[in-house]
């Protein structure tokens, strides 16, 4: 922190950029930044466009008729929408808390150089980054041995551990936590758990926030797991609701001629594009609202994580 303050302090300003260079920088960064959010704004506009407008002027930043009809349609699902919203929030919150806890514990043990099994546990998690048993065996183990079948646990447990985040978290610890701190705590008679939770965790907040954010996103965006293990509508998360529609559209595009007589009715009942766009807005909006708060931590977290010595 000290360093970055100085770096960003007066010293830098003295040798400041020329006006032209600064303007060029702003131009490049500004354009790219705007490009990053414009598509989302576009999708919001489309979701508020009337269908007649879509038919005449297509997808446009300036629809000739605004409308909330696609949202009305979405709201007509009523219960299912809100239940899915709740499910997504619940899964994300519960999953993030538990996975962060596991991550802190595991990576802390990896970080401790004096831990005799350190190599073993590092190896244990590393191998799983490269090899897996495939879909069907994993599915059977989760379903039949672990009972991950049509319940909230089925959407939380499969994403609890990420070896990549173990590496990230361990790196944070090793760059922020002086070993002397642990030694002195040990001399004071503090147990390992007390040291971790009362001394290490409070100074690692930025790192934890980073891992929490990445975990939360993984949970929020997950649909495949839900497709595998969730059967009843009451547990369906929002992202999967969108994917279900997508899967349905794909499937019917391919097979409608084989389904027989009812196919045309089924195809006709498939949600239209602007409705799907509205659903995209529903999915993205919470991320867009929540993540600037996280981001404050994540940037400083990454910053601290990489400061040497």
């Amino acid at each position: 922190m000290q360093h970055s303050i100085r770096r960003y302090g007066k010293n830098v300003k003295l040798s400041g950029l020329s006006f032209g260079a600064e303007a060029a920088f702003h131009l490049i960064l500004g354009l790219f930044s705007i490009a990053c959010v414009v598509p989302f704004i576009f999708v919001i506009i489309i979701s508020f466009s009337a269908e007649s407008s879509l038919r005449t002027v297509g997808f446009s930043f300036m629809p000739n008729l605004w409308s909330v009809e696609s949202y009305q349609y979405v709201f007509r699902w009523g219960d299912q929408l809100w239940r899915s919203y709740f499910n997504s929030f619940f899964i994300t919150a519960a999953g993030t808390v538990i996975s962060v806890l596991i991550c802190i514990l595991y990576s802390y043990s990896l970080f401790r150089r004096d831990f005799k099994l350190r190599k073993f546990f590092t190896f244990l998690s590393f191998i799983t980054m490269m090899f897996g048993g495939g879909l069907v065996p994993t599915y059977m183990v989760c379903k039949n041995i672990l009972g991950l079948n049509d319940n909230y646990a089925a959407m939380i447990v499969p994403l609890l551990v990420s070896p990549f985040l173990f590496i990230v978290m361990r790196t944070f610890f090793s760059s922020t936590v002086p070993e002397a701190l642990i030694e002195s705590a040990a001399i004071d008679g503090s147990g390992e758990y007390r040291t971790l939770f009362q001394i290490i965790v409070p100074i690692s907040k930025p790192g934890i926030a980073t891992v929490a954010l990445l975990n939360a996103l993984a949970y929020w965006n997950e649909w495949f797991i839900a497709m595998l293990y969730i059967r009843s509508a009451k547990y369906i998360p929002l992202q999967y609701l969108l994917m279900k529609m997508q899967n349905q559209v794909d499937f019917l595009a391919k097979n409608s001629a084989l389904i027989g007589a009812e196919a045309a009715n089924i195809v006709a009942s498939t949600p239209k594009e602007n409705l799907r766009m509205a659903l995209v807005v529903f999915i993205v909006a919470p991320i867009a609202c929540a993540y600037p708060f996280f981001q404050r931590y994540i940037v400083s977290g990454l910053t601290i994580g990489s400061v040497k010595g």
Partner: peptide
Amino acid sequence: MALPGAIWLILLR
């Protein structure tokens, strides 16, 4: 401390 993660890795991976 490593155990919860390790058990998960063993069971699910």
